[in-house]
């Protein structure tokens, strides 16, 4: 038993050591890596997936997956642009986007909790619905948008640090506050750890699942605001694939896919890990096609390590 604890600890360090080695390697290979400009740029770019990953951490701890968040991000980005372009101020747009996220999360959550659809399938369907909505409201064309607050959110800095990074960090703090400090958070761990025990302990498991999906979807919607703000344009393909980056970030961070364990601090490392990989590919001019292959392999290795350890622990 003691051995197992050691192994898990080693694994946590493993991620950090791996991350540091990666950074060291990249900085030797490309002097441009360790410049302030590149690092701030890298962090700014990681913020959108970072905010999604914060929500994904909760989802995975509750024992589920959500593969609709990329589309939610994209669609929320388009809603951002459309509402602002209609002349409404920033502070009207934000509640609209949050409401959108909440509704999507509610539908997915009800499908999963009340109709017992596996979360992977329910959010697969939900993702398609949202993607369709995105195409419908944009007509497939990019929508550019200009708003002083939005521009500050996407491109501004505070105390020399880009605003999106604050939002990323805030979302991580928010998620960890819920997970570690509130009754709801404890119930999320419990449901992910063993939903039957939770139910027999008087927890309304269905409600917990639904609330988790609502929170995660709201965070994904907020990331859409940041995305549109940063790029200045909402497109019909914005956000696609972010759900996979987010799942990879959470799992590489060390939150276990079977649920009941992990936290959002770990997810930060996972997000940075993924960003540094992408960033280094660009700096080292790795061909885009090849980037996919490498990134996929890295995810397989990281998750494979996690699952293999668990399998061995269970067999023992």
């Amino acid at each position: 038993m003691g051995e197992k604890v050691k192994k898990i600890n080693l694994r946590n360090y493993g991620v950090i050591i791996g991350f540091l080695l990666l950074c060291a390697g990249v900085s030797i290979a490309s002097p441009a890596f360790l410049t302030m400009r590149n690092i701030l740029n890298l962090l700014r770019q990681s913020a959108v997936v970072g905010i999604i990953s914060a929500g994904m951490t909760m989802i995975i701890i509750s024992g589920n997956f959500d593969i609709s968040v990329g589309y939610i991000c994209g669609c929320a980005g388009a809603i951002t642009a459309i509402v602002i372009n209609k002349g409404y101020p920033f502070f009207v747009m934000v509640p609209v986007v949050i409401l959108f996220g909440a509704l999507v999360g509610l539908v997915a959550g009800v499908a999963i909790a009340k109709f017992a659809i596996p979360s992977m399938i329910a959010t697969l369907g939900m993702g398609q619905v949202v993607k369709g909505m995105l195409l419908l409201i944009t007509g497939g064309y990019p929508i550019s948008v200009k708003d002083p607050v939005l521009t500050w959110i996407g491109k501004g800095s505070f105390l020399g640090i880009p605003v999106p990074i604050y939002l990323f960090v805030l979302s991580i703090i928010f998620v960890n506050f819920i997970l570690l400090k509130t009754v709801l958070g404890r119930y999320i761990y419990s449901v992910g750890g063993n939903d039957e025990t939770s139910r027999l302990s008087g927890i309304r498991v269905d409600s917990i699942k639904i609330i988790t999906f609502i929170i995660s979807s709201i965070l994904a919607a907020i990331s859409g605001i940041v995305l549109t703000a940063r790029v200045g344009t909402a497109t019909a393909t914005s956000g696609e694939g972010y759900e996979l980056d987010a799942i990879a970030a959470v799992v590489i961070g060390g939150t276990c896919v079977s649920g009941g364990e992990g936290n959002a601090w770990k997810t930060i490392i996972g997000v940075l890990f993924m960003s540094v990989i992408s960033n280094s590919f660009n700096l080292l001019e790795v061909h885009v096609y090849f980037q996919y292959v490498l990134k996929g392999l890295i995810i397989l290795i990281a998750v494979g390590f996690d699952s293999y350890n668990r399998k061995r622990a269970n067999a023992a």
């Binding site: 009754v183 404890r186 119930y187 761990y189 419990s190 750890g193 063993n194 039957e196 025990t197 939770s198 027999l200 302990s201 008087g202 927890i203 009941g260 364990e261």
Partner: peptide, 20 residues
């Protein structure tokens, strides 16, 4: 299967019903 959450801490298991 129904009584405990195996990988969760002892004290968190103990307080689950009374958590509020």
């Amino acid at each position: 299967r129904e009584g405990v959450i195996l990988k969760q801490e002892i004290y968190k298991n103990a307080t689950l019903v009374q958590l509020k």
